[in-house]
Computed example of a mutant assay.
Amino acid sequence: MNTDDVHQERNVLGGELEPCGWDPVTGFYRDASCTCGPAVARHLVCAVVTADFLAHQRSVGNDLITPVPEFGFPGLRPGDRWCVVLDRWLQSYEAGLASPIVLAATNERALDLVELDVLRRFAVDVPDDLSVLG
């Protein structure tokens, strides 16, 4: 993926999409960012994963704990920042087990399926411009 494409994508607050996580390196493209790119990847939500979120995801068939080295996936531990598939985050949200999220690193395409007010309730970052928090 062209690095210029990353700078064209925006976050849910309307600003430049910030990196989600370098350790482990996240993103569909393993570029540390929750970019969609030309593949329209759905790894849009920059989650700070919790033990409850990881356990829930494992229980519904999305094992984010077990490493899969051949795909560059190290396995996650509570506290890791990871670009998760929007539908999977919503699945945990509906079960009352959603993880906190980093708004500045969550792709604006997430707003296609979820309201900003819902995302704000799980925000762990504080934007420079506090007026966006309403």
Rank of each mutant, 00 (worst) to 15 (best):
S33T: 14
W89R: 01
V132G: 02
E94Q: 13
T106S: 11
Q91F: 01
H7S: 13
C36M: 13
E108K: 00
G61N: 11
S33A: 08
D23A: 06
L76N: 05
E16D: 13
V85M: 04
P100T: 12
H7C: 10
A51T: 05
F53M: 09
E70Y: 11
V68W: 03
R42H: 08
E115F: 09
P24I: 05
V84I: 15
V118D: 09
A110E: 11
A55R: 14
L103K: 04
R121M: 13
P127I: 15
G61H: 12
P127S: 15
A41L: 09
L113F: 13
R81K: 10
A55Y: 07
Q8A: 14
L116H: 07
D80M: 12
P67W: 12
A98D: 06
G14S: 05
V12E: 01
L13K: 08
P74W: 03
Y93E: 06
A123I: 02
P38M: 09
V49K: 05
S59Y: 13
N2G: 04
G27F: 05
D87M: 13
P19V: 06
C46I: 03
A47P: 01
P74M: 09
D63G: 10
R77M: 10
S59I: 12
V12A: 03
W82P: 01
D129S: 09
G14E: 06
D117Y: 03
L113Y: 13
E16S: 13
V102N: 00
D117R: 11
G79P: 09
V45Y: 00
E115A: 15
E115W: 09
N107Q: 08
C46F: 02
D63E: 11
V45I: 11
V12W: 00
R30F: 07
G72L: 08
E9D: 11
V118H: 06
R77W: 03
N2W: 02
I65G: 04
D52T: 05
H43I: 00
L97F: 00
V49D: 02
Q57T: 12
R77F: 02
F53V: 03
V68Q: 09
P78A: 14
A51I: 01
C20R: 04
E94S: 09
F71D: 03
T26E: 07
S131R: 07
A51D: 14
V12Q: 01
P67A: 09
G96C: 00
Q57R: 14
V102L: 02
D112F: 11
R120W: 13
V49F: 08
V114D: 02
L133P: 05
R121T: 14
A110Q: 13
